[in-house]
């Protein structure tokens, strides 16, 4: 079952400090500076949505949070682990930070169950039986239990993305990152994925979501971040963010997408 009561102790302990803290994060690809010194803190249990124009650095920033991209400068702390760090630190961060990709990236040669169980077996030391049990529990949680023995290419996009969410949850991460999770989906499948994400948000998991779904951000986010030209331009709770933004660039962006 979903519910905030699942981890009361952890939430109470963590309420005092942030689970993610970034300062001055910079990243260049060749001559192009994609991130120009990004600062952001995320509190335990918080849902942060990042929106902004394409090429603004949203995805790159998200990918620095689990070490898929290495920042050229600046500091990132995830829970107690600092990046940049050793090889071991990066593995550790990735085990604490789950990621859901735009293009699902499920492993096509494994069953759905194996996709979800793989991480716990290889990186958490669970037995096959324990991992399969966990996988089935999580597949039920994303309403896709009956597809456990199929292979990803046999599923619809929406189903694949829900499996990908279960796969990320299987590591029992402290934070979940979503990189435009609904952008590659056919329109009729967007809702089923957003529904699952809403349920997760209400269960108290910390989430950082890069998205173009303004409705989702407005409804679910605790804070919304506007990112453009490699910087965080504006941060506010959704109500203020969408109704009365003080930032002209955000206003012009919203007028185009809403």
């Amino acid at each position: 079952m979903l519910g905030r009561s699942e981890k009361p102790v952890e939430l109470a302990q963590g309420a005092t400090h942030s689970i993610i803290a970034c300062s001055g994060v910079r990243k260049s690809f060749g001559a192009i500076e994609v991130l120009k010194g990004v600062d952001l803190e995320v509190t335990r249990g918080e849902v942060v949505c990042i929106i902004g124009p394409s090429g603004g650095g949203k995805s790159t920033f998200l990918r620095t949070l689990n070490g898929l991209e290495t920042a050229d400068a600046g500091h990132i702390r995830v829970d107690t682990i600092e990046l940049p760090g050793t090889h071991r630190d990066i593995l550790q961060v990735r085990r604490e930070v789950g990621m859901v990709f735009q293009s699902f990236n499920l492993f096509p040669h494994m069953t759905v169950r194996r996709n979800v169980a793989l991480g716990p077996i290889r990186a958490r030391g669970l037995s096959k039986a324990e991992a399969n049990e966990r996988a089935e529990r999580l597949l039920a949680r994303v309403h896709i239990f009956d597809q456990a023995d199929k292979y990803p290419p046999q599923l619809s996009g929406g189903q694949q993305q829900r499996v990908a969410i279960a796969r990320a949850l299987a590591m029992e991460p402290k934070v979940l990152l979503f990189d435009e999770p609904t952008s590659a989906l056919d329109p009729e499948m967007v809702q089923e994925v957003l529904e699952v994400m809403k349920e997760l948000a209400h269960s108290g998991i910390t989430m950082v979501v890069v998205t173009h779904e303004m409705g989702f951000a407005r409804e679910v986010a605790d804070r919304v971040v506007f990112m453009a030209d490699g910087n965080i331009v504006y941060v506010a709770p959704p109500k203020e963010f969408f109704t009365n933004p003080g930032e002209p660039r955000l206003r012009s962006f919203l007028s185009k997408v809403l």
Partner: peptide, 30 residues
Amino acid sequence: VPRGQVEAARAMGLSPVWVLWDVIAPQAIR
């Protein structure tokens, strides 16, 4: 093997040996 496959495996915190064994090799060999 698509780049996203390797990224997904890395993002789960799999060590390079497992990334090769579980994700790259089976798809590459096919």
